[in-house]
Amino acid sequence: MTACVEAHHLRKIYGQGKGVRAALDGVSLRVSCGEFVAVLGPSGCGKSTLLGIVGGLDRQYEGELDLFGRPTRALKDGELARMRGDRIGFVFQAFHLLGHLSALDNVLAPALFAQDGDKLRARGEQLLVEVGLAGRGGDMPEQMSGGERQRVAIARALLREPQLLLCDEPTGNLDLETGAQIVEIFGRLHRERDLTIVAVTHEKALAQAADRVVNLRAGKIVDEVAPELS
């Protein structure tokens, strides 16, 4: 199966001298297109760092990374940005909605950087319906609950029909029930859209929805197991 993500010996160092710390220490990871991979591990084990590198947000690392078959080292900033916009969606623990924009305008934010951005409005409205926020497009983020904000963030990530969805602790700020609803949405997206998902989490509930679970400890992959064994 074609690899959407192929990382070899990723290593990321923070600090200098005696304070040096390896957030990632030789991580290699292959994610096939259409696969749902959960990266499980405790806080501070390097999960978010791994996601930042895989998403092309962090370019200061050692090792090699291919996205959709293209070595990212060879890409210029603009090319990598275009790849992120066209093919990768992000969902963050803190939602990162823009407080001055309505829910619909938040969903449409990626259209600003798309060639066909002006044609995406109808899709944005449809996505809000799909994530259970029909009729809430005009609400401001401050008027919404945590779960609703995360749904808006998911709709935003899906606006440009990405091939790869990168989720950083997407249920981390939600209660169990709301978290379960979000996990259900990811599962549905994976099944129905054949969406490739890499979710880093420390919650086993999210890992249960994945095809494969990668356990990360102190910047290293310690094992890869089936979800029921995680």
Partner: peptide, 16 residues
């Protein structure tokens, strides 16, 4: 900073 970072994540380049 965070807004700029978000724009970068959803497809903006440094030049943008």
């Amino acid at each position: 900073r965070r807004e700029i970072a978000l724009y970068r994540a959803i497809g903006a380049s440094a030049r943008d």
